[in-house]
Design a protein around this nucleic acid. Structure first.
Length: 603
DNA sequence: GCAAGGTC
């Protein structure tokens, strides 16, 4: 008997279906001589410190450097503390039984570093010795699955991938557990002051932005506005220059004559291509902007829709689909014909030539972009419907035509130069789907200008001296933070590190919402309206670690570079030694620096 | 009591 193991039930069942295996069992399926089972993501994790004899939290234990890491069943929090997750334990027992009966195992976990780790942890924990082969596919269409099975790879080809995954896992444990205990113990507070490769740079970004915003000194500057009249239609034009002093601006306003001479009119059409399909992060950002949902709420709602088979896999980092999936898109659009909000747009797209900007198999990673499945939703809650509509609406947008705008820029002379600019949508294209106002342009600039011609002289109806202030960068909200996490590392000077982070940024699509929640749970940050702002605790932690490596995205860049080297055959031992050295160093530093932790005043 | 990673 051959046993196929997938990362999650949806994939396991999908592969079973392609094989024509229809017999449903508890935790697996079988048919045609194959058995199809699955994990639920990571079933196993590196064991907690006490499993290596490091009892309690004690400076004597630090740094904790287990000679050999152990695996433990994933835990859940209950009122009696952390216990083995019963569902996970049950599934592991099922997998064990199937592996025991197997002649061969086929590994069908996701094609990536963590997918490899999910399987290997199970395999080694169960002390399984059966031979295994690897299915490596990046699309789950019937053809891709069949093709993958015709090209199964020897399991050992992925040993170095497992090595890199295991190193990632151990390194996060070593640095995170030790740094957390060191800071918590040294600070003299009783609480947990957690630190980690991802959460600490995230906290640092929020704190740095908050302080920058708070300490920002606005600069005053001045502009002159004039209001020319074209056949009764009055519009606004602003001085070409900004002025540092009121006097300079006053000198300009004094020069304004009763007339404005049209020196130049530029009217250019501008094509605006449709947005790409959603990946998890872009959807979380959109839902935060439009609906005020947190990243965590959006992920939860989307997971429910996925379990109801209404949308495709949610935790994707790709905004593209392959040609195979694209083939099904016309049907998906057709299914939206009766949608109350988008029905008309769906109908308009039916039979039209579809924009293929988001069709690119090379840019599909483990999973493709989020799409509706074509199953028509019924009785969704308002929140679920809102998320569903963002997915469905985005699909219509993505395959729609360009939006064509006309951007007009009028230059007037009235003593000095003045500029009026405006944008008019000529053909809505994809923007017809949600029919919102143009978000890029603020209302002031997004105006219709009258038709004027070069050489015309217009009467100036009014002139005004404007006093303005420079503005600080906005505080982070969930949407802008998610974006910042995605692009973290883009500014790193070292080219190789920047390159190593290019794909991922900080964290992964599946974990970013959880990172934000961790910072909230630790009371490092608070939600203040839509903004994320640091608490006094968060700022005090930031103050201690801000100049250390653990507070910067570069740490992830360094690791990613080394992990890639390991994947292509580089030394595991050398990296592990470096991590140990770093762990010793950061533990010592924090035991010292943590003493100056200024406990916030208790409320 | 603690990381980051995956998922129900």
């Amino acid at each position: 008997m051959k046993v196929i193991i997938a990362e999650k039930p949806s994939v396991g069942r999908e592969i079973a279906r392609v094989f024509g295996a229809t017999t449903k069992k508890d935790g697996y399926m079988e048919g045609n001589g194959y058995t199809f089972t699955w994990a639920f993501g990571h079933l196993l994790q590196l064991a907690a410190p006490q499993e290596y004899g490091y009892y309690g939290w004690s400076v004597q234990n630090l740094p904790m450097l287990p000679a050999k890491f152990k695996l433990a069943i994933r835990k859940v929090k209950t009122k009696d503390g952390m216990v083995d997750d019963p569902g996970v334990k049950k599934q592991l027992d099922i997998i064990k039984k199937l592996f025991d009966e197997a002649t061969e195992i086929i590994v069908a976990t996701d094609a990536g570093r963590e997918g490899e780790l999910i399987f290997r942890y199970i395999y080694y924990y169960l002390k399984c010795k059966k031979p295994f082969k690897r299915l490596w596919i990046s699309s789950q269409t019937d053809e891709a699955i069949k093709d993958g099975f015709r090209n199964l790879k020897p399991g050992s080809e992925y040993d170095t991938l497992f090595n890199s995954a295991h190193c990632r896992s151990q390194s996060d444990w070593l640095v995170g557990m030790n740094a957390t205990q060191a800071l918590s113990l040294a600070s003299g507070t009783r609480g947990v002051l957690s630190l980690g490769r991802v959460q600490t740079p995230t906290l640092a970004m929020i704190c740095a932005r908050y302080l920058e915003n708070k300490n920002f000194v606005p600069q005053l500057y001045y502009q002159v506005a004039i209001y020319p009249d074209k056949d009764g239609q009055v519009f606004k034009a602003i001085s070409e220059k900004n002025f540092k002093t009121r006097e300079e601006a006053q000198a300009i306003i004094d020069l304004v004559t009763g007339e404005g001479h049209i020196q130049n009119v530029e009217a250019k059409p501008r094509k605006e291509p449709p947005p790409l399909l959603h990946d998890l992060s872009s959807l979380q950002q959109e839902a935060n902007k439009r609906k005020g949902f947190t990243a965590d709420q959006t992920l939860g709602l989307l997971q429910n829709l996925y379990e109801g088979k209404l949308v495709t896999y949610p935790r994707t980092g790709s905004r593209y689909i392959g040609d195979d999936v694209f083939a099904g898109v016309p049907d998906l659009i057709d299914k939206l014909n009766s949608h109350p909000e988008f029905g008309k747009q769906a109908a308009a797209l039916t039979g039209a030539k579809l924009n293929k900007r988001c069709v690119n198999a090379k840019k599909v990673t483990d999973h493709h972009a989020i799409l509706p499945t074509g199953v028509v939703p019924q009785h969704l809650s308002a929140d679920h419907q809102a998320i569903y509509d963002l997915v469905a609406g985005r699909m219509l947008e993505a395959f729609h035509q360009d939006c064509i705008k006309e951007v007009t820029r009028i230059t007037l002379l009235s003593g000095s130069k003045f500029i009026a600019s405006g944008t008019v949508i000529q053909t809505a294209g994809w923007r017809a789907v949600f029919n919102d106002k143009d978000e890029e342009k603020k209302d002031e600039e997004n105006v219709t200008l009258p038709k004027v011609t070069q050489g015309e002289d217009l009467q100036i109806t009014e002139k005004v001296l404007l006093e303005k202030q420079t503005k600080p960068k906005a505080l982070f909200n969930e949407a802008s933070l998610l974006k910042a996490l995605e692009t973290a590392g883009k500014e790193i000077e070292d080219e190789e590190l920047r390159e190593a982070m290019k794909e991922g940024g900080l964290g992964t699509p599946a974990t970013r919402a959880a990172i934000i929640e961790t910072l909230l749970t630790r009371k490092y940050i608070l939600r203040e309206k839509k903004n994320l702002v640091p608490t006094e605790t968060g700022l005090a932690v930031y103050e201690i670690v801000r100049h250390q490596r653990i507070a910067h995205a570069e740490l992830t860049g360094t690791w990613e570079k080394r992990l890639e080297e390991i994947r292509s055959g580089g030394s595991v031992a050398a990296f592990q030694e470096e991590i140990k050295t770093y762990t010793r160093a950061i533990t010592q530093e924090l035991l010292q620096a943590g003493k100056s932790f200024k406990a916030p005043v208790a409320i």
